[in-house]
């Protein structure tokens, strides 16, 4: 190595570093395309459902009078709707998040089961009166929902 001129060592080092970082970038880009978790609104999920078992997120409103606790005392079934036609049944086993109520926004992380019921592993509800999951905030703006508007971030 000592025979290499200083200028050359710098070039070798820089190219090796660039190579490693480009490799990391390519790997990241490839993995992102495969592993990113897509977000669906209820109507999108009805029209073009994701593959069974693929991890996705479903966001919408909890339909009125749809929350039902099953006999095991742990599993909750409810319907996520966009307040129009689309209704997706969801099942969740676990402790419900704070402020999970009918008529409020929810984002469910999970996958679609073979029976067409969305099985959620995790629910994100309104965090507090100032926080709405960002996707739902957009939905409220697009559809001019007064119900969510007053919970939008900032509140000023």
């Amino acid at each position: 190595m000592s025979s290499i001129k200083p200028k050359h060592q710098r070039i070798v080092l820089v190219s090796l570093a660039l190579l490693a970082i480009i490799a990391a970038g390519l790997l990241a880009a490839w993995a992102l395309r495969n592993q990113a978790n897509y977000f669906y609104l209820p109507d999108q999920m009805m029209a073009d459902p994701p593959a069974v078992g693929q991890a996705v997120r479903l966001g919408g409103m909890v339909a009125e009078e749809s929350i039902e606790t099953l006999d095991d005392g742990l599993t909750v079934a409810f319907v996520v709707t966009d307040k129009a036609e689309a209704r997706v049944p969801v099942r969740y086993t676990g402790i419900l998040p704070d402020l999970f109520v009918e008529g409020s926004g929810v984002v469910a992380e999970g996958s679609l089961g073979p029976d067409g019921v969305f099985v959620a592993d995790h629910l994100l509800a309104k965090h507090d009166e100032n926080y709405v999951p960002r996707e739902l905030q957009d939905m409220a703006e697009h559809q001019g929902e007064p119900g969510l508007q007053d919970t939008a971030v900032g509140g000023e």
């Binding site: 570093a17 990391a24 990241a28």
Partner: peptide, 21 residues
């Protein structure tokens, strides 16, 4: 140098993953 390059690569991966959405 190896440690530096690897840490930069990890940094790049976290950065891309964070900005991708």
């Amino acid at each position: 140098v190896f440690n530096n390059v690897m840490l930069s690569a990890i940094l790049g991966i976290v950065l891309l993953g964070t900005l991708y959405p």
